[in-house]
């Protein structure tokens, strides 16, 4: 029951980063973009993600069948010309279901991660930078939320608000931001003691400015890595929430649900596990390449020529 999180979509998160970097000084974002473009692996990840997102957007026009259309007599059948990736136990086209499932999984993955990113990073920075009793109270709140029985919580949320997609993001974000906050806080605490921060304080910058200009760019590494870990975890976590009735409702599906049901029949109908698994893996690899590339590109210290904050 671990789970993680990511931004609405990549371009949005890039925009927010752009904003930060502009404030940091001259157009660092342009430099970063140039560096990113030089990183072939990262660009590969970028194009794969773009491809997956585009496919998702046009799935209703592209899908060969309806995701709910059954052929009970056919049942589960392996890949064939009519069904490229085979069919599931109710005779539904797997490729179609995978495409529709991708819409759900990508949306949930990015949106819920975005929630956790925003809340977790803000919470962690403020707690870590401010320290003292503010830090103590904020982190104890995190502890409390960790300890509450999450399943009961989700069941109650559904009773009060009904079943909705928004609730799904909220429920996942609610869990995911906690670890993010802890990681960020740890990093910030370490950074706060460093010389360049002390120097910034001496120059009379406000706490807000220091957090934005000096702290945030320096924690992007672990944050980006954690995001790329969060997205797939969220996609799988969604399958668990579907179990409680919160996720997608059948006959719709998602990658997580497809994988979870595919496991049950992996000996009899392996394609029902392999293809959804592949879809998730490809996404994950692409995201990681992109994430690593972004991390390198945005690293103030690796800026070519002009020294980063350190020098």
């Amino acid at each position: 029951m671990q789970k993680l999180t990511a931004p609405e979509n990549m371009t949005d998160s890039l925009k927010s980063l752009e904003h930060i970097e502009f404030e940091g000084g001259r157009s660092l974002w342009n430099d970063a973009w140039i560096r990113l473009k030089r990183n072939r692996l990262a660009m590969f990840g970028f194009w794969v993600m773009l491809f997956l997102v585009s496919i998702s957007l046009i799935t209703p026009w592209l899908a060969p069948y309806g995701y709910e259309i059954q052929d009970l007599e056919l049942g589960a059948s392996g890949p064939s010309l009519a069904h490229w990736l085979g069919t599931d136990t109710l005779g539904r086209d797997l490729l179609t279901r995978l495409m529709y499932g991708g819409r759900v999984s990508l949306l949930v993955g990015f949106a819920a991660t975005a929630v956790s990113l925003v809340v977790g990073v803000l919470w962690g920075i403020v707690a870590g930078y401010t320290g003292g009793s503010v830090d103590a109270v904020m982190m104890r709140i995190v502890d409390i939320l960790y300890a509450l029985p999450f399943m009961i919580f989700v069941i109650l949320l559904m009773v009060v608000f009904g079943q909705s997609f928004l609730l799904l993001f909220l429920a996942i974000g609610l869990v995911e931001w906690l670890t993010m906050a802890r990681i960020v806080r740890g990093q910030v605490q370490a950074l706060r003691r460093q010389d360049f921060v002390s120097a910034a304080i001496v120059t009379g910058l406000s706490s807000g400015q220091i957090m934005r200009r000096h702290i945030l760019p320096n924690i992007m590494g672990p944050v980006i890595v954690y995001i790329t870990l969060t997205i797939p975890a969220v996609m799988l976590f969604e399958a668990f929430l579907s179990f409680l009735g919160l996720g997608v409702q059948p006959p719709q599906s998602s990658w997580g649900v497809l994988i979870a049901t595919g496991v049950e029949t992996m000996e009899e109908y392996p394609w029902l596990l392999i293809f959804p698994g592949l879809a998730l893996s490809i996404t994950l690899f692409a995201l990681n390449f992109l994430g690593d590339g972004l991390r390198d590109a945005l690293d103030p210290r690796s800026a070519s020529g002009a020294g980063g904050i350190y020098e």
Partner: peptide, 14 residues
Amino acid sequence: LAPVVAFSGPAVAG
């Protein structure tokens, strides 16, 4: 290992 340490508390509970 700082990020790992921060992660490990909740991870062990997890």
